[in-house]
Design a protein around this nucleic acid. Sequence first.
DNA 1: AGCATCACCTGGCTGC
DNA 2: TGCAGCCAGGTGATGC
Length: 279
Amino acid sequence: MPELPEVETVRRGLEDTVVGRRIDRVRVTGRRSVRRQSPAELSSRLEGRRLDAARRYGKFLALGLDDGEVLVIHLRMSGQLIFVPVPDAVGQAPHTHVVLAFEDKSELRFVDPRTFGEWYVTDDVGVNGLPSDFSRFGPDPLTDRLGARVLATRLTRRHCTLKAALTDQRVIAGIGNLYADEICWAARLRPDRRVDTLEDSDKGRLSRSISRVLRAATNKRGSSLRDQRYRDLMGNLGGYQAHHEVYDRAGKACRRCGASIEKVRFGARVAYCCPSCQL
DNA sequence: AGCATCACCTGGCTGC
DNA sequence: TGCAGCCAGGTGATGC
């Protein structure tokens, strides 16, 4: 499931491939991927436009068009973008729901088995080139500075668990299930710890861990899990899975203290953590 | 206001 | 072997 490091890897791929290309034809075949507007409307607002910029905020992609509008793409659980330079040579993968065909015949294809992912075009764009309603999200830890003081402010008057706060996009944008667990381990804090019990020193470690884990994962081009679902635009796997400390490591030894990693369940979600060195 | 729960969806896994 | 049933997981809506 793509989170910030995976989406950032895809964004960089988009910058290297489709930015600068003009859209010739849009094919929407899936029923659910375009739902805020009709597929016909989406197509007519895209066809003839040139892609001018590939931006990202949290887990959202925002592709700037040459008329000022923005194409927003969210991959959600299983969405994948594939760049195909020579379409005739490559058969279309199952669950391909949207295709942008460019004037030079190359294609950007959207594959999404679980159909949670979404595409829409909006003209409600701020000066940063992002949709105005993205202001409801918290800071993006890769592009905004998220120091201990800022983080502490964003966590005040909250009584939820640390993991719930980390994955709440209104608090911080871009963190999901996997990286929340990895960040908690790096900060030596339990994911089910109540945020109102955190000391200043905890928040300091937390802010450093958020930045460190997300940067390291982005440098490794994200994580591909056992299903190898996540791939970048060119079909390459990510490399950060080899560096996971807790995620999907139940029963294995903590590489910091040797204790057995636990899979703990709270609320409707599951989290992985070390019962010994996370407090 | 803020927190918890649910709906959305389907490939893949578990267990009988 | 076959199949039913469950699970994952981000976001937004709904309920409390």
